[in-house]
């Protein structure tokens, strides 16, 4: 019984989201839509069960606003940058880098990867989940210094996401000084291969 209750608790955000989607699709909020949406949501989650997402359950409005605001600005900049690259004659050089992240949470890593794909110049290629190492493709780099700046941008994005949605543990891990620097991590990976 307790297992079912905890399962329902995990499913609750998904159920609420499905009911909201149902109401948005109908365009109006009414009791009929609410009940109909709840019925559809129950059927969908029963027939197509998803693995439970371990959410930290924390949400800090101020940090989240900082993340969203910065995200929108970044989206604008990156769109203009890629548009310019598309119009500009001549060629540009790309880069593939690996970045050692400090987060160890499925949900947070998902948010980071999603956001990274939309902000300036980066696209997530691969994620080594065990070591939290993300491989990122940079669309345009001018020189090595630019690469390092982009790497710092990635870590900054991680920082903002974790401070907005992460648990206290995750944030504490951000401030730990003992994490490996990206450079040594990259060479280590190379020598392993």
């Amino acid at each position: 019984m307790t297992a079912r209750v905890s399962r329902l608790r995990h499913q609750l955000p998904l159920l609420v989201w499905l009911v909201v989607v149902w109401n948005l699709l109908w365009g109006t909020f009414s009791w009929a839509n609410l009940l109909g949406g709840a019925a559809v949501a129950l059927v969908v989650t029963t027939l197509l069960p998803l693995p439970a997402v371990e959410a930290s359950g924390r949400f800090r409005p101020l940090a989240a606003m900082r993340f969203v605001g910065r995200f929108l600005v970044d989206l604008l900049i990156s769109s203009v940058e890629v548009s310019w690259l598309a119009f500009r004659p001549g060629r540009h050089r790309s880069a593939i880098i690996t970045v050692q992240l400090r987060t160890d949470s499925d949900l947070l890593l998902t948010v980071i990867a999603e956001a990274l794909s939309l902000v300036p110049g980066s696209l997530v290629l691969d994620l080594d989940r065990e070591h939290s190492v993300m491989a990122i493709h940079l669309v345009q780099v001018r020189d090595l210094e630019h690469v390092e700046r982009q790497r710092a941008n990635v870590l900054g994005m991680e920082d903002r996401v974790v401070r907005a949605f992460g648990s206290a543990e995750d944030i504490a891990r951000l401030d730990e000084p003992g994490t490996q620097t990206p450079e040594t991590e990259g060479t280590e990976r190379m020598s392993q291969q």
């Binding site: 050089r93 880069a95 593939i96 690996t98 290629l125 691969d126 090595l144 690469v147 990976r189 190379m190």
Partner: peptide, 17 residues
């Protein structure tokens, strides 16, 4: 990437190999 449809000559840095 896994099927190697990458133009490596155009990469400035490639840490993934």
């Amino acid at each position: 990437y896994r099927r190697r449809h990458v133009r490596r000559a155009r990469l400035l840095v490639d840490e993934l190999g």
